[in-house]
């Protein structure tokens, strides 16, 4: 495989890993949602995200043509091979001093899950349509599919952001805390990785920084409506898309990969 194809693969893995890791985190609400409708909503969104990941992994497997499959890419890579944004692997907990795994019900904060989905969906609402112009025809086709899905994801998280922000004192305080905790992680969206720069050069992906003004508009408009205060973008810029992760990703993957690794090639 050539260097160019390799770089395209890294970019596709970045997109796929984003979808898979957030899909896994959202799936953690299945059976634990605050109300039945939200339980179903999170499971539906998770299903969409995992579907996006499957299509992207399959595309990578086809490009690599080295025996890799969507399953081997999802289940048999280690944390330092994943290229997702750090934002997406964090537990549903509104502070950096929270639990490492964070799957116990006492450690889940729905406001954090909603704010995370909102910040990411607002980005993908812009990125998927941009990717419909990709020189990679298969990626463009997947993006056209995903662009339809993300509108519903953004609508869901934005609605709850406004309801909680413009809700009771407690819901307002909790969603503001989640926002204060998560917003600095969005800086990672705008500093291009080598894979993103290579994708831009090949016409496979857009200049991600060019999406920022529109993302700011989407976010600021929703925050104003939700009577929330936008925290400043300061602090360390996380490097998940460059394969440097928080300690949380290992726990996410442990949970997700254990069955496939214990029974490789199992069929049912």
């Amino acid at each position: 495989m050539g260097v160019a194809a390799n770089s395209q693969v890294n970019y596709l893995l970045h997109l796929a890993d984003n979808a898979l890791i957030l899909g896994q985190r959202d799936a953690e609400w299945c059976g634990h949602g605050p109300v039945l409708e939200e339980d179903i909503a999170m499971a539906n969104i998770s299903l969409d995200l995992i579907g996006q990941a499957r299509l992207l992994y399959q595309h990578v497997a086809d490009l690599q043509a080295d025996g890799a499959t969507e399953d081997s890419l999802a289940y048999f890579r280690d944390p330092d091979e994943f290229r997702n944004y750090t934002l997406l692997e964090l537990p549903h907990f509104p502070s950096a001093t929270g639990p490492l795994a964070g799957t116990a019900s006492a450690e889940r904060d729905y406001a954090t899950a909603i704010v995370r989905n909102f910040l990411y969906s607002a980005l993908m609402q812009l990125l998927w349509p941009a990717l419909e112009q990709s020189t990679d025809a298969q990626l463009a086709a997947i993006a056209a599919r995903a662009a339809k899905e993300v509108r519903y994801h953004l609508r869901h998280s934005r609605d709850w952001l406004v309801r909680m922000g413009d809700g009771t004192d407690e819901s307002h305080q909790r969603v503001q805390s989640a926002l204060n905790h998560l917003m600095p992680y969005t800086q990672e969206f705008w500093t291009p990785s080598e894979a993103e720069l290579e994708a831009l050069r090949l016409g496979v992906g857009p200049d991600v920084a060019s999406l920022r003004p529109q993302w700011d508009d989407l976010v600021n408009e929703a925050l104003t409506e939700a009577t929330l205060k936008r925290p400043s973008d300061i602090g360390y810029i996380t490097q998940g898309k460059n394969r440097q992760h928080s300690e949380h990703l290992g726990y996410v993957l442990g949970d997700m990969q254990v069955l496939a690794r214990q029974h490789p090639g199992a069929q049912w």
């Binding site: 406004v162 309801r163 809700g167």
Partner: peptide, 8 residues
Amino acid sequence: ATIQFATK
């Protein structure tokens, strides 16, 4: 149209 919800 971006799908939006009514505020409270």
